[in-house]
Simulated scan of single mutants.
Amino acid sequence: MVRSMTGYGRSQQQLGGYDILLEIRSVNHRYFEFSCKTPRMYGYLEDRLKAFVQERVSRGKIQVNLYLQRLDGGDEVIAVNRAVAQGYLQALREVRAELDVDDDIALSDIARLPDVFAVRRAQEDPEAVWSLVAQVAEAAVDEFLAMRAAEGERMKDDILARAQAVLGYVAKIEAAAPQTVSAYRDRLYAKLQELLGDRQIDEGRLLTEAALFADKVATDEETVRLRSHVASLEEILAGGEAVGRKLDFLVQEFNREANTIGSKCSDVAISKLVVEMKSEIEKMREQVQNIE
């Protein structure tokens, strides 16, 4: 199955006392590039998410966003630093005694002092948290890959249709090539008649010149290779998932053969066919750039 490098997946579930939302999206990239956003206290999950995604995705610029919250609101706990509070209270009483002032110290006064209260993360088992996140990640990645596969099938059909169009142009070029040689021979004969007048034309020399021209503009090798490239293209597309790099190289070969035909043939009709064929090849290349 051919897969696009563009995709999106999302899953939100409540598991094990947590509300977990994971989103994954990707765009074209030559290699596998991964970035991840997680809540600060769950940063340790980033490497595990990268490894999890990379097991199933080989190319693309991947972005994962993870949102995770405890349903009981216990993500963080408030801790009282009693030693600090008692230290403040003792110091204030000593100052009161030294200055001989009224004792108007209240709890709210101590609560406003630094370091009396501390916000700490509730204790969690990282492996237990990961096992929950992995379930949500699997559902999101499944949706993500399904979207990539659906888009990949559409691209595959388009590429195959354009490959058939290339074969059509190849057939027309093959049919037009002999006519090009014949037209050249007729033009050469007419030119010689004009130059020689009543003198006899050397038929052997005429045939030799026509043969040299035919060899110069022959495109048999290129058209044969183009047909072979189409067969290889169909084989690759039928073969597997991560085929983008192979296809990219193969389409370059398509373009090389088309350019060679264009450089060999000065015939206007064939030149037009080459232009049309190269247009189809370029559209194939654009599609291939988005295949994993």
Rank of each mutant, 00 (worst) to 15 (best):
P114R: 02
D115C: 01
A118M: 10
A118K: 13
R121I: 01
A122G: 12
E124V: 12
P126C: 06
A128W: 12
W130T: 08
W130H: 06
S131C: 06
V133A: 06
Q135V: 08
V136G: 09
A137H: 04
A137L: 00
E138I: 00
E138A: 14
E138V: 00
A139D: 13
V141D: 01
D142Y: 03
A146F: 12
A146C: 06
M147L: 12
A150T: 11
E151G: 01
D158M: 07
R162G: 00
A163R: 01
Q164V: 04
V166Y: 09
A171L: 10
E174M: 05
A177V: 12
P178E: 11
T180R: 13
S182P: 05
S182W: 07
A183G: 07
Y184H: 08
R185L: 02
R185G: 01
R185V: 07
L188C: 03
Y189G: 00
Y189D: 10
Y189P: 02
A190M: 05
K191A: 15
K191W: 06
Q193L: 03
Q193E: 13
E194V: 01
L195F: 08
L195S: 07
L196C: 09
G197N: 09
I201Y: 14
D202Q: 08
E203L: 08
G204M: 07
L206E: 09
L206C: 08
L207V: 11
L207R: 11
T208A: 08
A214R: 12
K216F: 04
V217E: 13
T219Y: 04
T219S: 14
D220Q: 11
T223L: 09
V224R: 15
L226N: 10
